Computed example of a mutant assay.
Amino acid sequence: MTDSAEPTGPRERDAWLRVFHEAREGARPLVCFPHAGGTAGLYFPLSAALAPGVRTVAVQYPGRQDRCAEPVVEDVTLLADEIARLLAEAPSGPAPVLFGHSMGALVAFETAARLEHRHGATPAGLIVSGMQAPYRRPARCLPDGDDEAVLEALSALGGTDPAVLTHPELRAMILPALRGDVRAATAYRPGSCPSLLSCAITAWAGREDELAGADVRAWAEHTTAAFRTRHFAGGHFYLHGFPPPVVEAVRTALTHVTATPAPSPTRTRT
């Protein structure tokens, strides 16, 4: 991690924040956070579908693909510290909407909290997918070196081609990042930064996911603004490849979360 007092160079920013398609001047940024073991490239189809009206920015965590020589950050809050700093230093423009899936939802949430409470740069909205609200997460422990447990969990979620998990060389490539990310997600506990946001939150999940509806709805406790939920056909990785219904839901969510409705105790479920 870099010293926050030092200016961020283009190479550092480009390492963390990837833009795949050109967007119109003044387009609102949608900052996307991958799941455990995921990469920025997973959001390429969404970026293509939303351009040029939305400037999709995908986060590339250290320890994977072209950043494989860097150590994996095994702490959600440290990831959020760095990403929030980079976003806060971005040139002036529309406030971003943050969108995270699974572990990425936790990183997006902590990043939103830092932007608002530490940098005075409240995001326009937060979309969280496939994850319980922070205080509803059960305490879990991942034994050191238990790679098979990590792979079995990933396989059960249906997020990776089974052929990848049974190929020794491919397994060796993905395991370091996956192991570190799973440790970060299992060790995560909220509280290092104020967790009440003033931006709207939208929470999504797959209908066949194991997430309890109450755990998804509990995200409402983290905003003083509007809250919406939605369930999609499929399991934990219902958004894989970003089929048209999910893309349209993102467009709708961007409209909802940036409408800046007046704070209200009444939550809207769609």
Rank of each mutant, 00 (worst) to 15 (best):
S4P: 15
G9P: 07
R18T: 06
R18H: 03
R18L: 02
F20D: 13
E25P: 07
A27E: 12
C32L: 12
F33D: 14
G38K: 02
L46V: 03
S47H: 08
S47D: 14
S47Y: 04
A48T: 11
G53K: 07
A58C: 05
Q60W: 03
V73D: 10
V76G: 09
T77C: 14
T77G: 13
T77W: 00
I83T: 14
A84W: 09
A88C: 02
G93K: 15
A95M: 07
L98Q: 12
G104H: 08
R114P: 01
G120I: 05
G125L: 03
L126Y: 05
I127Q: 00
S129N: 09
G130W: 01
C141L: 07
C141G: 03
L142H: 08
P143W: 05
G145F: 01
D146L: 00
V150M: 04
L151Q: 10
G158H: 03
G158Y: 05
G159E: 10
T160Q: 03
L170K: 12
M173A: 15
M173I: 14
L178G: 09
A184M: 05
A187N: 14
L197S: 06
C199W: 03
R207Y: 05
A214D: 15
A220T: 09
H231L: 09
H236G: 01
F237H: 02
Y238A: 00
L239N: 02
P244T: 11
V246A: 02
V246I: 10
E248I: 01
T258E: 01
P261A: 08
T266L: 10
T266Q: 12
